[in-house]
């Protein structure tokens, strides 16, 4: 019940509040303590017992003091960057959040609540503590991919209840973060691909020399080297440079029935092959919706291709 009210409260101030402001409200525990304070005050006054009154005032002052303490946990906090690690459907990833604080006393046990996401499951009660000694702190908030797609996350809520759990202090940050969930990696082999014809064939000696070992084929022995050095070497052929491959969505294989799922399957299959090609050091490109992405094999190229797959809509 309480979290619902809290959520509604956030929704409200999201529309009216300025980003970067720090809000502080008592928790349910805090309200209970306040009620105890009231009770003790009445008891103390009715029975004119000064011990009860004193005890009550100490509790009350600690209550108020913890309000400042909690507030100062978040004071001066800055979000330097928000990034998201590679995330596929049904795989785990993380949102990498870099924070910085200008307060020497540091911030403790901050928990982070990103918006609810359609595409990825977020740990909304993720807690972390910030070490005051470092300049910037990087935090990984775990994610679980649910659905392929790209989604903008507009706000991130940082909140803290430290130290006494009596106050909930939170602040909202506007972020440019996009949660990108790539298709699932499935070896279905449903897509089509075609190699790019190369302009010139590979020439030259595509082998390296290894010390001859018994069992190596005689055909592999480097006779020339044997004559030169009187030592046995065997040739070990390295595969010639692969011709780049362009993967594309096979429209012909898609039947009208259950179209959406088939497209997803094909995307998953392409996704799986992208990784395979990259690990084999083969240049790969994409042909999606008639647009060609020129082949390359760097990690960034892979990321770019995956992003295209994630944002595919027909």
């Amino acid at each position: 019940m309480w979290t619902n009210i809290f959520q509604r409260f956030i929704d409200r101030i999201l529309t009216i509040g300025k980003p970067g402001q720090i809000y502080i409200i008592p928790t349910f525990d805090g309200i209970k303590l306040l009620a105890l304070n009231g009770t003790l005050l009445v008891i103390g006054l009715v029975y004119a017992n000064n011990f009860v009154l004193l005890f009550n005032f100490i509790l009350f002052c600690l209550f108020l003091g913890s309000m400042y303490y909690t507030h100062f946990n978040l004071r001066g906090i800055e979000v330097i960057s928000v990034r998201q690690s590679q995330l596929h459907v049904n795989e785990t990833g993380s949102i990498k959040l870099a924070l910085k604080s200008s307060s020497e006393l540091g911030h403790f046990f901050v928990s982070c609540r990103p918006q609810k996401s359609l595409y990825a499951q977020l740990d909304h009660n993720f807690k972390f503590s910030i070490d005051k000694s470092t300049d910037a702190i990087e935090v990984d908030i775990p994610l679980l991919g649910i659905k392929r797609g790209i989604e903008k996350v507009e706000t991130i809520v940082l909140e803290t209840l430290f130290p006494f759990h009596l106050f909930r202090c939170f602040t909202l940050f506007k972020t440019p973060l996009q949660i990108v969930v790539y298709p699932e990696r499935k070896n279905l082999n449903m897509h089509s691909f075609f190699p790019v014809p190369e302009t010139s064939a590979n020439q030259g000696d595509d082998f390296v020399l290894k010390n001859y070992q018994t069992g190596d084929s005689l055909k592999r022995v480097h006779w020339k080297k044997l004559a030169q050095s009187n030592r046995w070497y065997s040739k070990s052929i390295i595969a010639p440079t692969h011709t780049p491959v362009i993967l594309s969505l096979d429209e012909t294989k898609i039947e009208l029935k259950d179209k959406g799922r088939q497209i997803e399957d094909q995307l998953s299959s392409i996704c799986h092959d992208l990784y395979r090609l990259q690990s084999q050091q083969i240049d790969f490109g994409l042909m999606i919706n008639g647009e060609l992405i020129t082949p390359a094999k760097t990690t960034n190229h892979l990321r770019f291709c995956l992003r295209v797959l994630a944002s595919y809509e027909n």
Binding site: N50, F60, L62, Y68, G106, F162
Partner: peptide, 28 residues
């Protein structure tokens, strides 16, 4: 509550508790 209480710095506790006690006496 799973707080790492070692993170509660002495300085902060001092700042929190001493004035609280003094001022609760004053309020009293």
């Amino acid at each position: 509550r799973n707080y790492d209480l070692s993170q509660l710095s002495f300085k902060r506790l001092f700042v929190l508790i001493i004035p609280s006690l003094l001022l609760s006496l004053l309020m009293f």
